[in-house]
Simulated scan of single mutants.
Amino acid sequence: MGKLDSKQFLLYLAWLVSVIATLGSLYFSEIRGFIPCELCWYQRILMYPLSLMLGIATFQNDLSIRIYVLPMAIIGWSISLFHYLEQKVPGLAAIKPCANGVPCSAEYINWLGFITIPFLAFVAFTLIIIFMLFIKNPKKV
């Protein structure tokens, strides 16, 4: 087994972040019993496939995966940011209330006064984006 280069390591880290985020969201819903709101579902729809895609790319050492991962992560990042602002900025919650079920402004957790579930998703998407931006495709000959 050869030495792991920095690009492979960043790919591995992105996969690890996506797996932790996926397992974390499943923990909150399936073990803690928190019902996901509409925006949470959109974030899950974008994060869960990243676990699979990045896992396959990690073990295949396929650095070209970034062209597929970046758009999904950026969209997920945007939704997470909007969701977090909806929770923390009082005037934003009225912009798009969830139609049924749990309101998107609800906070199941509020660790240290600012860490909520959308914040955790925001951090995960941010890390994945950063790792993908530092992976550059090798020059084609």
Rank of each mutant, 00 (worst) to 15 (best):
I115V: 14
L70I: 13
I128T: 07
N61A: 10
I130D: 12
A106N: 14
Q43D: 11
L16Q: 10
I45L: 11
L85Q: 14
P36L: 10
G24D: 10
M72G: 05
T126E: 09
L13K: 02
H83D: 10
I109Y: 11
A93R: 11
W41N: 15
A124C: 12
S29V: 03
I130E: 14
L81W: 11
M72V: 12
T126A: 14
I109V: 15
F131D: 12
A93K: 14
I79D: 03
L112C: 10
L52I: 15
Y84F: 10
I31H: 05
I79G: 01
L13E: 06
P103A: 07
F34I: 13
V123P: 03
M132F: 02
A99N: 02
F34N: 07
I74P: 00
L85E: 03
L50P: 04
T22P: 03
N110Y: 12
V123E: 08
L112T: 07
L112A: 11
L85T: 06
A14I: 00
G101A: 01
T58K: 08
S51Y: 08
L26M: 06
T22W: 04
I115L: 11
I74C: 03
L13M: 06
R66N: 00
L23R: 01
F59E: 09
G76I: 13
T126Y: 14
L133E: 10
S64I: 00
P118S: 10
A93M: 06
V123S: 09
A21D: 13
C37A: 13
I95D: 11
Q43S: 06
N110S: 13
F134G: 12
S18Q: 04
F34M: 07
L133G: 13
G33T: 08
A94V: 04
L54R: 05
M72H: 07
W77D: 01
F34Y: 15
G113E: 14
Y68I: 08
F82C: 01
F82D: 03
A73F: 04
I65A: 06
T22F: 08
W77Y: 13
C104W: 02
T58N: 08
L85N: 12
L133S: 09
Y48H: 05
I56T: 09
F131M: 12
S80V: 02
T126V: 11
A121P: 08
S105W: 11
L127S: 09
L50I: 02
Y68N: 05
I128C: 02
I128H: 03
I129L: 08
L70K: 13
E30G: 00
I35C: 00
V69R: 01
I129N: 12
D62T: 02
K96I: 12
Q60E: 12
W41K: 15
V19R: 01
S18F: 06
